[in-house]
Amino acid sequence: MKGHEPGRITIGEAARLTGVSAKMIRYYESIGLLPAPIRAESGYRTYGAADLHTLRFVRRARDLGFSMEAIGDLLALWRDRSRSSAQVKAIALDHVAALRRRIAELEGMAGTLSDLAERCCGDERPDCPILDDLAERPDAGTSPRP
């Protein structure tokens, strides 16, 4: 490719090597998680080894469910060699607590739906406690009816 710097690759190649779509790479650039790319003479974005490493870091953090804000904080700490591991641990433990809260919420929803499904005959009749619950309660899915 004319104007292609040695050791640099296109956005498509970066996407393939990191498992992060080109669309997400552009998004990460727009929100500052990834620095603005170097452009080839053709105007195409090009990426180097450090960019790929950052993209893999972001992808792994996303796979673990971190928010974009937390990923930004983690990236800043990763780049700061004078960081304290206590800062990183605090972010991770906050995320663990949030995940556990979400798991509890999901378990509650599953329990409610399971209870409602058990009460539903599932036959040819129109009566359905599941639909009745959804129609009557604005907080459906959080707790079963007494």
Rank of each mutant, 00 (worst) to 15 (best):
G108Y: 03
H53N: 13
A117P: 00
W78H: 11
M24G: 03
A135P: 02
I91T: 13
K23E: 15
E69M: 09
D73W: 04
R56F: 00
V88H: 04
A15T: 06
W78A: 09
S84R: 14
C120M: 05
I130M: 06
A135W: 04
F66G: 04
I11P: 00
G122P: 07
A97M: 07
M109T: 09
Y28Q: 08
A14Y: 01
M24W: 03
A135Q: 10
D133E: 12
L131E: 07
S82W: 05
R102C: 05
S84W: 04
V88K: 02
A97I: 02
D132P: 01
R100P: 00
D63E: 15
Y47H: 09
G48V: 09
R56M: 09
R62S: 07
L93Y: 09
L99D: 02
Y27P: 04
I103C: 02
A76G: 13
S85G: 07
I71D: 05
L77M: 11
G32L: 11
A49T: 13
V96R: 08
S21E: 06
D80Q: 08
A40F: 05
I9N: 04
G111L: 01
G108R: 01
E124G: 10
R101L: 00
A97P: 08
A135E: 11
V96L: 13
L116G: 02
A49F: 09
T10W: 03
P6D: 12
I71T: 14
R79F: 03
R39E: 08
R8K: 12
R100F: 01
G108W: 00
G12A: 10
L116V: 00
E136W: 06
G72V: 11
G48C: 10
V20M: 09
I31L: 10
L75N: 03
D63V: 04
G19V: 07
K23F: 05
A50T: 13
I9E: 01
L77W: 08
G108Q: 03
A76Q: 12
A92I: 15
A22Q: 08
S84G: 08
V20N: 07
M109C: 00
R83H: 15
Y44K: 07
Y28S: 07
